[in-house]
Design a protein around this nucleic acid. Structure first.
Lengths: 149, 149
DNA sequence: CCAAAATACCGGCGGATTCCCGGCGATCGG
DNA sequence: CCGATCGCCGGGAATCCGCCGGTATTTTGG
């Protein structure tokens, strides 16, 4: 599953994580490679599954989601389909991880207001006990993996 | 801070979150707009701060980070600089949110092995009591905001 | 050690895309 | 009614992408 990456590959990943829309020619310039060699590298990274896609980052507050919360859900039993259906129905649930420990699921939830958040948490509480923490600020917004020096 | 978005804007955001590298002409085709009108819309979304950037998504396991964990840190006191310095020194810490509740910080941490994870958590435990949960799987990988129907 | 093969890189060409215009039509305020 | 503003469209120049053959370096196998 793990692919071997050299310094140039890491440089490419770093640039593409910082700005996923730079032209390949510019990317080549930054990593000191010709455009075609860069293209080939990127294509390989994509086809080996290192790069799984590209996406625009959207500011939550700017689109009306003023509240962000971490919700931990203790979910007894093993009927997971209803939860999956809820994930499909609730775009406000932005991310959902299954974890070890007391809390089976950890989710990131966006809402436009506290009332809105309450509504979502009510839905979640149908499944188990939900523990909610509001997010003050993103001390460190998500950054992709970087080489361990 | 919040910007008003019409259905076309949301369609653009949706497409760009799904594939941040599609040509603007193709994007225009998908949202039924000319290339230049699309360009103008995207430019506006960028300059108003709705779109904060573009980035490539990198598979953690594929680059050697086989272990993912959620670490919650109870951090007494208000000396946050040392933690910030640690964030800069430890690329394995992928994300860090400051939250309400008992746990002041919630982080997402990637490691190549349990030993590696232990090392990182040791660093964190210098600051307060760290509570770690391993991630089995990403039930729902991060998806950006979508309109609340 | 040498030769053959494989790999990674470069440069150039045609087609597509982006960027920058001016122009058109609708909406708004006076 | 009229001028101004806004969003959209279409066109042309510059740029970029995808594909090609050719060259240098590394790897493989005898």
């Amino acid at each position: 599953m793990a692919v071997n990456l050299d310094a140039t590959d890491w440089a490419i990943l770093s640039e593409l994580q910082r700005d996923g829309r730079i032209p390949l020619s510019e990317l080549g310039r930054r990593v000191s490679l010709s455009a075609s060699a860069t293209t080939e590298r990127v294509r390989r990274l994509e086809s080996t599954g290192v790069i799984t896609g590209y996406s625009a980052a959207v500011d939550l507050a700017a689109v009306g989601y003023a509240v962000l919360a971490i919700v931990r859900l203790k979910y007894p039993g093993s009927h997971h389909e209803p939860l999956h259906r809820l994930l499909g129905r609730r775009p406000e649930i932005l991310e959902c991880l299954r974890t070890t420990g007391d809390d089976c699921y950890v989710m990131k939830v966006a809402a436009s207001s506290m009332a809105h958040l309450e509504e979502i948490v009510n839905d979640l509480a149908e499944f188990g006990s939900a523990n909610t923490n509001l997010v003050y600020s993103q001390t460190l917004p998500y950054r992709g993996p970087n080489p361990r020096r």
